[in-house]
């Protein structure tokens, strides 16, 4: 079986982002970029399935500008067999990303697609579900545990009410939650090895994907600031302050 893994590059999760004063976006120039944390978990899970003999090949897929290639090398250094770089300079909506993945799925015929449950930049949480819909295949979102056997995936999902277990026939789309696994670190020799692994570069325009976007972002703003708080010196003062606000 072949596994496709979505590997998005985002502003590093430790960066406190700034909104541009003119409201046209957030400042990304000179800001540290990293793999979306959920995508590292997706790749780790795919690699573990390969190590268990469930999968033979793990392919990382990125959609973005020319310099995304360096980012995909990180995925190769972590252990992916090869990478596909769908090149575009435009920002891509979750629907366009899902349509792009569908084209790759038709070409690559994977048994499983693993994506992160959400990207920490747009926080959309849509692409995996959309791909599953367009592909007409099962989705197992927010996966906390994945077991593959006999052409089926048994997935434990982290839902509001607790843990839901579902069974899905393969091929299927799985999206990862935080607790699925602990991604491995990249070792120096693997970075060297990754340099010789293949990266296919495909122009998004050549895939025949409809990219029209009917949702436009018209303005960016900083969130409203909370007014400055007060410090109290002990429990009694805290209780008094809360009672005064009518909260206790």
């Amino acid at each position: 079986m072949k596994i496709l893994v979505g590997y998005k590059r985002v502003v590093d999760y430790n960066v406190r982002i700034q909104v541009k004063p003119d409201g046209t976006g957030v400042v990304t120039d000179g800001v540290k970029l990293s793999a979306n944390p959920f995508d590292d978990i997706a790749l780790e899970e795919a690699l573990r399935l390969r190590e268990k003999g469930v999968a033979e090949e793990v392919v990382v897929v990125g959609i973005g500008p020319a310099d995304l290639t360096a980012h995909l090398r990180n995925g190769l250094a972590m252990g992916a067999n090869r990478a596909i770089h769908v090149q575009t300079t435009d920002a891509v909506s979750p629907l366009t990303a899902a349509r792009t993945f569908l084209k790759l799925v038709e070409k690559e015929q994977p048994g499983l697609v693993i994506l992160g449950k959400q990207a920490i930049d747009d926080d959309a949480n849509q692409t995996g579900q959309m791909l599953a819909a367009l592909w007409d295949r099962p989705q197992a979102t927010f996966a906390g545990k994945v077991e593959i056997a006999d052409g089926k995936a048994k997935v434990t999902r982290e839902v509001d009410a607790g843990l839901e277990v579902i069974e899905a026939d393969l091929p299927a789309v799985i999206t990862t939650d935080l607790r699925l696994n602990e991604p491995r670190f990249i070792k120096l020799p693997d970075i060297m090895k990754a340099k010789s692994k293949p990266i296919d570069v495909i122009e998004l325009g050549s895939l025949g994907v409809e990219t029209a976007d009917h949702i436009k972002t018209t303005h960016y703003a900083a969130p409203p600031k909370r007014s400055k708080g007060v410090m109290v010196k002990d429990a009694a003062e805290l209780v008094a302050a809360l009672k005064q606000k009518g909260l206790l």
Binding site: S93, P94, L95, A98, D123, A124, N125, Q126, T127, G128, Q129, M130, L131, A132, A133, L134, Q139, T141, F142, R157, E158, V159, D160, D213, H214, I215
Partner: peptide
């Protein structure tokens, strides 16, 4: 988690992006 799982699947079948 219910709505996040379901709504994007609905949106894609309708051929639209979703507002999350």
């Amino acid at each position: 988690t219910f709505g996040k799982d379901l709504a994007p699947r609905v949106a894609a079948l309708l051929g639209v992006s979703q507002v999350s």
